[in-house]
Design a protein around this nucleic acid. Structure first.
Lengths: 195, 195
DNA sequence: AGTATAGGTGAACGATCGTTCACCTGCAAT
DNA sequence: ATTGCAGGTGAACGATCGTTCACCTATACT
């Protein structure tokens, strides 16, 4: 069988998995590939397993491999150029979810408004991925609750003092007044801007 | 059954799915939950389905729902505060992969070096998600091949002229000379910075 | 004390799964 | 012209799946 043909089967299975979050059964593949025999599927699956597009667990259940699912392809050095579809295998691939979300329970995404962090490369409209926690270190970018509202700023801790620094010369540092507590709500772990 | 207990079962199943990319069978759940009867699992699964943590397809196969997998939780307005684990359901959730990768075949991720785009909020070390294509519009941020090397810049098209603009006053626009062609390799669709 | 009831065990059921067998077909190489 | 073989059909197989049944605890509530 042509490698190119095999790849088409691979893509159909990947699409099925993406849609259904489950691998197709042999019967489903028969419909999917327009074949009328389970044995044809059986041989086909064997090729897919050989090509490391899938695995079989101890009881024959079909399991997708990293190679099949392959999130986004990472280009080590752009200088090498973009890989052609044929040499796709060269490019390492990963899921953005696993890359950016170490702890799903405590991780949230929210949109930033205002230009106070623009010199730190955070523009209004950007999404930030934050990890819910009440402590942070000096220099962290945090989501803080102060003066009745939430804001995203640099956290500063010096000489027992604690305050918030913007990254924009037109804004002033926010120093908590007496009786107005500064609550750290979350720490910014990543920034995402979509065009 | 306590909702809290059900949630623990849910988490175990989610972990299983994350690791194996496949939902556990009833037999596997028996080991997973330390139960000795399939029927106990059967009743448990019914609860999970009722709670919309999973679905059953036409032939009884267990399929994870969006609610089970839940990528990252999105906070509409931070003003509303962070949801407690109990009210998690309020927060909409999504996968970053589907959010940022519309077309997986042609999408790549690469690291930016240099400070030439810093005023556009792209700092050295940031990752950019690019879509492989040879055409782009005026104002797009592109990966271009010129003068024997790759670079990330704004694309400008005016009066039949085409050139590259940096987003940093210390850098000069790159205007292709005679005999030195400007090749657009990809269009930047998103920027990711991880702290 | 009596009794529902939620949650579990253990065994049996048919359905579907993946696997295997024998056989057919068309193309390519000899 | 003949052979070899990759790739397909169709039917049968046991294994495992999800489902269902009867029955057994505990605990909570009259």
């Amino acid at each position: 069988m042509n490698d190119n043909v095999l790849e088409q089967y691979k893509n159909k299975i990947r699409n099925f998995y993406d849609e259904n979050k489950v691998m197709p059964t042999y019967s489903e593949m028969m419909k999917l590939f327009d074949l009328k025999s389970k044995n044809a599927i059986f041989k086909l699956v064997k090729r897919l397993v050989d090509a490391d597009y899938a695995e079989k667990d101890s009881s024959g259940r079909l399991v997708p491999t990293q190679k099949l699912l392959g999130g986004i392809k990472i280009l080590g050095a752009v200088e090498a150029g973009f890989p052609t579809p044929a040499e796709e295998d060269i490019a390492e691939s990963m899921s953005l979810d696993t890359y950016l979300i170490p702890n799903r329970e405590a991780t949230f995404m929210l949109r930033v408004s205002g230009e106070s962090m623009i010199d730190a490369g955070i523009q209004p409209g950007d999404m930030v991925i934050v990890e819910r926690r009440t402590d942070a270190r000096d220099g962290d970018i945090v989501v803080a609750f102060i003066d009745g509202g939430y804001t995203v700023k640099f956290l500063r801790k010096r000489n027992g003092k604690i305050w918030l620094d913007p990254a924009n010369e037109s804004f002033e540092p926010i120093v908590p007044q007496e009786g107005d507590e500064l609550h750290i709500m979350a720490v910014v772990k990543a920034v995402i801007r979509k065009y």
